[in-house]
């Protein structure tokens, strides 16, 4: 037997082929007594039904959290979660925060320096010192 097969795995990239929204669940906590939840209560009443209908990929869980500030917690496919305290915010400001959570990937925030990141190897290849005509020193 001259060729032996090695075992490897395929690697998937989200968006190549199919795109899966990374936010899978959102916990929305409110308090109907405290003033800091005033905007949140308005958000839940007026904006959330439309937002949830427009984003069926996300499971929304609305639950009271009495005498605490209102919080939105996003749960992501990679197992991480992101929580944003939305105390004293207006409903539309909360919508911005919720959209931020929806669009996040769940990864830790990191600085991106390169405009393109790719797992594919370079088309041009790596420069080799042993090829070509060489360089006159």
């Amino acid at each position: 037997m001259t060729v032996k097969a090695l075992q490897t795995l395929t690697t998937g990239r989200n968006g190549v082929g199919a795109f899966i929204l990374q936010c899978k669940k959102m916990d929305i906590h409110y308090c109907d007594w405290a003033g800091s939840s005033k905007g949140m209560n308005g958000f839940i009443k007026s904006i959330l039904p439309k937002f949830a209908a427009a984003n069926p990929q996300i499971e929304f869980v609305v639950s009271p959290r009495p005498s605490k500030h209102p919080v939105v917690i996003g749960h992501y496919i990679n197992g991480r979660e992101k929580a944003i305290c939305v105390r004293n915010l207006e409903p539309l400001q909360i919508l911005k925060k919720v959209e931020l959570l929806r669009d996040a990937s769940g990864e830790k925030l990191r600085k991106v320096n390169k405009p393109v990141q790719s797992v594919n190897e370079s088309v041009r290849g790596v420069w080799s010192p042993y090829h070509g005509n060489g360089m006159a020193v």
Partner: peptide
């Protein structure tokens, strides 16, 4: 659509 480098299997 997942990627696999077949040349790594030999």
């Amino acid at each position: 659509s997942r990627t696999l480098d077949l040349s790594k299997l030999f």
